[in-house]
């Protein structure tokens, strides 16, 4: 099984970029004065001639990435999720999305696990923002191995992609020997037929622990890791709805506009079942240690176990 060494997905992303760059000359990386934090600095050190710091100017970074893409480059543009998707939203929509250019946008320090920096930097809206852009692929990998493979898949896909990266070092739960990333395909981590939990990103491992603990308490929950938020895997959702009759979504994101609503849209149209959304309940975060915040917002394994139990017993 996977090793237990903790690693933040931003770090995995930086490593994956280097792996890709070894084989592909067309990769260039842009950052907006956060290379040390987004971990594009790993790439910067290995490939200084293909790294471009744009300074603290995210709008121009996205536009420059678009221009590079028109000339055949495959730019990865990174900043904190708040700025790469929030500050530069309209640039992404009009200069990347509309012409469907081959630009990859990375948003690190996503969610409340930014921690001490507090609400201004805790972006819980990035998935919602990126979902609304026609043709945009939205990825939210859950651990090191998944991030590496997702980054490679983002490169292989010809078109705009958003990838969400986390700041917090987390343990890996995927098995590197058997793990396979397929864009747009959810992964069933635990089988079960009482209820389906669909989780995404950093909280998948928390959900995994919660679901396993629930099995000991007689709740046979299915767990799906939904690493691709868009295009969402309709088949796996409909199958879960039919077979378990109830779905609970888990995300480190506002319950408005993220995984929960993406799943609910599928069930509402194709197989109506009750869907409960666990996430950030339309509030801002605040300062504090990441793990403390995760617990406070009920998104750690213990909190999830309690919430899932209360939902199904309701």
């Amino acid at each position: 099984m996977a090793e237990t060494k903790k690693i933040a997905t931003r770090e995995s992303f930086g490593m994956a970029l280097c792996e890709l760059a070894k084989e592909h000359d067309d990769i260039v990386v842009l950052d907006a004065d956060l290379a040390a934090a987004t971990k594009t600095e790993i790439f910067k050190k290995a490939y200084p001639d293909r790294f471009f710091d744009c300074g603290i100017s995210e709008a121009n970074m996205i536009g420059a990435a678009a221009g590079l893409a028109t000339a055949g480059k495959v730019p990865f543009a990174a900043s904190f999720a708040m700025f790469s998707t929030g500050r530069a939203y309209e640039q992404i929509r009009n200069s990347v999305g509309y012409p469907h250019l081959n630009v990859k946008i990375a948003g690190s320090h996503a969610g409340i696990t930014v921690g001490e920096d507090g609400a201004t930097h805790q972006c819980c809206e990035d998935l919602a923002l990126m979902r609304t852009i026609p043709g945009m692929v939205v990825l939210n990998p859950a651990d090191h191995y998944e991030m590496v493979e997702a980054t490679k898949a983002a490169y292989a896909y010809n078109g705009p992609v958003y990838i969400r990266l986390g700041r917090l070092a987390i343990e890996s739960f995927n098995d590197p020997d058997t793990y396979k990333f397929e864009l747009g395909k959810g992964i069933t981590l635990e089988d079960g037929d009482d209820v389906t939990v669909i989780a995404t990103g950093l909280v998948v491992n928390e959900a995994l622990k919660a679901v396993r603990a629930l099995k000991d308490k007689g709740v046979n929950a299915r767990l799906i890791n939904m690493h691709t938020i868009k295009p969402i895997d309709k088949d796996i959702i409909v199958k879960a709805a039919k077979e378990t009759g109830r779905i609970i979504t888990v995300e480190e994101h506002n319950i408005i506009g993220g995984l929960g609503e993406a799943v609910a849209a599928v069930t509402a149209e194709l197989c109506p079942v009750k869907v409960n959304r666990i996430g950030i309940e339309d509030v801002y975060g605040h300062s504090g240690p990441a793990l403390g915040l995760l617990a406070e917002f009920g998104l750690d394994a213990e909190g999830l176990e309690k919430k899932i139990l209360s939902i199904i017993n309701d």
Partner: peptide, 20 residues
């Protein structure tokens, strides 16, 4: 050579083309 219309964005794309 580039979709444009939202002001301020075309010049950034031009920068990217020049850099490429």
């Amino acid at each position: 050579d580039m979709s444009s219309g939202s002001l301020g964005q075309g010049i950034s794309a031009a920068c990217g083309m020049a850099l490429a």
